[in-house]
């Protein structure tokens, strides 16, 4: 298990895609800190970037990596190894490498320029979001045997959580604007891992003042320690549930 984890992490860190991703993100982060006139503003921009880019890269990378490792997984399965350990090592390995890439590209500039509470929060959310979307990537790569379909499904998942979900919320808000829909909608939005991260960032960035009643509602629901624990729980569930389903599927898969 440990050997396998090290092996996979090493393999991924040598992967060109992840290196390119890290370099690109590093350049963006660094230039954001240099170009924005205050570090706090840079953190705002960075927060938005993390919310958008990290999920996309994580889900695509993990999906593609699993498909590209089909033969290697085959080799591993024929060895005296538990299937669960194989899948877990893959999951942990991708996560570790992703965190490493994020560390180099985003965390280092944050630590250098703005080692504030908000900065640490962004780092934490980056780790969580990458884990959530790696987990979703595992699920879609195990659901579809065909690589193109699997990657397509991953893209759709990302689009759904990053874009379509919010569109639907807006639609419902207007459709049912005569009803007290605000509170249930806040809860529904909290079910989307990207939205819940965004809401957490918003409550911490002192934006709730801008947001009037909705902001007050956010603050009430998620501003407290209790609310933050709920957010963390939601994110943990989002990491765990898709991964768990993929694990069951993998344990019974014919390879």
């Amino acid at each position: 298990m440990k050997e396998l984890l090290i092996l996979i992490s090493k393999d991924i860190l040598k992967n060109r895609t992840i290196i390119a991703f890290a370099i690109l993100l590093f350049c963006i982060t660094w230039s954001v800190f240099i170009l924005e006139d205050s570090n706090e503003k840079a953190l705002h921009t960075l927060g938005n970037l993390v919310l958008m880019v990290v999920p996309l890269i994580s889900i695509l990378f993990s999906t593609i990596y699993i498909y590209n490792s089909t033969e290697f997984i085959e080799l591993l399965v024929s060895q005296p190894l538990k299937r669960k350990s194989i899948w877990m090592s893959l999951f942990a390995g991708i996560n570790v490498s992703m965190i490493f890439a994020l560390f180099v590209s985003i965390f280092l500039p944050i630590l250098f320029y703005s080692p504030t509470y908000l900065g640490f929060l962004i780092m934490l959310l980056a780790i969580f979001l990458s884990a959530v979307f790696i987990s979703l990537g595992f699920l879609s790569s195990i659901l579809f045997k065909d690589k193109a379909r699997g990657i397509g499904f991953s893209m759709i998942l990302w689009l759904f959580f990053a874009l379509i979900f919010d569109g639907l919320i807006l639609f419902f808000l207007f459709q049912f604007s005569d009803y007290p829909i605000e509170k249930p909608m806040t809860v529904i939005a909290a079910l989307n891992p990207i939205d819940v991260s965004r809401i957490l960032l918003l409550t911490e960035m002192d934006n709730e003042a801008l947001m009037g009643y909705t902001g007050a509602l956010f603050q009430k629901q998620f501003g407290s320690i209790y609310g933050k624990m709920i957010i963390v729980c939601i994110l943990v569930l989002w990491v765990f549930i898709p991964y768990y389903f993929s694990l069951i599927k993998f344990s019974n898969k014919d390879i």
Binding site: K14, N15, E71, E74, L76, S78, P80, L81
Partner: peptide, 27 residues
């Protein structure tokens, strides 16, 4: 059991030595 697959495929970035080492460690 020792298994020799029809078409063996290995992590592209590994050397022969590393593959052998790895499998040795895994077992």
């Amino acid at each position: 059991i020792g298994y020799m697959p029809q078409i063996g495929k290995y992590p592209a970035n590994m050397t022969i030595k590393e593959v052998v080492e790895t499998i040795r460690k895994l077992r």
